[in-house]
Nucleic acid binder design. Structure first.
Lengths: 221, 221
DNA sequence: CCAAAAGTGTTAATCTTACACCCATGA
DNA sequence: TCATGGGTGTAAGATTAACACTTTTGG
């Protein structure tokens, strides 16, 4: 009768950052069997008394030393894994971080690191699929909500924002059109300061206007 | 150590139909404690050996007598419920059906029925929130994917399709513009037959072109 | 002074919206 | 013949897409 109360729930998180003009995801070496040493997404078993949000916090704290980053639920993956101690359901989340702003401290124990996303990433379980799922979700979300606040430093140039969009959507933009489009959305504010040391002309710096960023939502149909 | 393998996973499904020009959702009377007799979404505990898809099928078979209807995963709700026998995580799905086409046979045991969605619906647990979550998800999905194949009879008029869109998106359309817009999307085919008995002029009947319906996807950004 | 990166406007084409009347049919 | 519901086109306005040169600055 209570057989059904015999399932484990794991929570895994795709933590993305935008670093060196690339989208990267946090991976760790698995600390115990099965697949000990294999490359996986950070994850952890849910304790019966915890909420999903609490496990998320623990996973974040453990692996990047900051539990207060933006995460959003992705999906539950219910394939019947053959885990030695029984049935596991994995509930996945994705998160977006900025290495400096979020004061990321990578866990050395399990060799936590950000890797760029390509064929060679190759995680165990179906964790590659989860990354794929997350990437698509973010792409879709970008169509009606702004992106960047959680990934960029608090001050950034228009070209940096364009690079981010270009990278996450996998396509090139026309500088002039991108600029106009983003500025029309009206969630940026130009600040008086101007770019750090760099070759060439100095760029205008922008910040997100927190309220407008939060409330921006494009209508469809 | 194995304490974490002591969680129950329930699967609940929001099954929507479009009936009498209204969006309705399947609700049942809860068959056991807690809240025995309360109005809930159809749901069931996951057995350790089952996949999520298998429980979905069981829930569907039991409540509407047809396990082969379109469902899609919504979200895992992980609030720490106080369930007498332990911790439960609910993973919710939504499904779309047509009463005739899908040969819906409502389960009489638990008084399964479709009810229209308004303030008075009032389900136990957070099942109202799940319906809300599902409604929003469908609305968003409609912005880039077609809707109707699973809800309408296989042949339908343009005005019926407009009514469905109007109902699910909660807004009115201009007949001419709606028609043009849908036809441009090019997933409908006009068939030679003409509408059933009705007052007034007979309407052209349409069907969805399965391939085009499936592949239609509007680009954003 | 020149290489590097930032910034800027206009036009044509496309898409969206608003809008009102005629058509076919059954009662 | 008339009430009912089905069907149709156009023009103005808004949005998007394509396009290349000038500016600023540090080396």
């Amino acid at each position: 009768m209570k057989e059904y109360l015999n399932i484990g729930v794991s929570v895994s998180i795709c933590i993305f950052c935008y670093d060196e003009d690339q989208k990267k995801v946090l991976v760790v070496d698995k600390e115990n069997d099965p697949f000990k040493g294999g490359k996986v997404l950070p994850h952890q078993m849910l304790q019966p008394k915890q909420s999903l949000e609490e496990v998320c916090s623990e996973v974040l704290e453990k692996n990047i030393g900051n539990k207060d980053v933006y995460v959003e639920q992705l999906n539950a993956f219910g394939k019947v894994y053959r885990h030695p101690s029984g049935r596991i359901i994995d509930i996945s989340f994705y998160g977006l971080v900025n290495l400096e702003k979020d004061k990321i401290k990578l866990n050395k124990e399990n060799n936590a690191r950000f890797e760029k996303i390509d064929k060679s990433l190759d995680l165990v379980f179906d964790h590659d699929d989860i990354i794929d799922f997350a990437s698509k979700r973010i792409k879709r979300r970008m169509k009606y909500r702004p992106l960047g606040k959680n990934l960029l430093p608090s001050q950034f140039t228009m070209n940096e924002l364009e690079g981010l969009y270009s990278c996450f959507l996998g396509k090139q933009f026309d500088k002039r059109n991108f600029r106009r489009r983003i500025l029309e959305m009206d969630f940026l504010k130009e600040i008086t300061k101007v770019q750090r040391n760099t070759r060439g002309r100095k760029a205008i710096l922008y910040e997100f206007d927190p309220k407008k960023y939060k409330n921006y939502s494009k209508a469809g149909f």
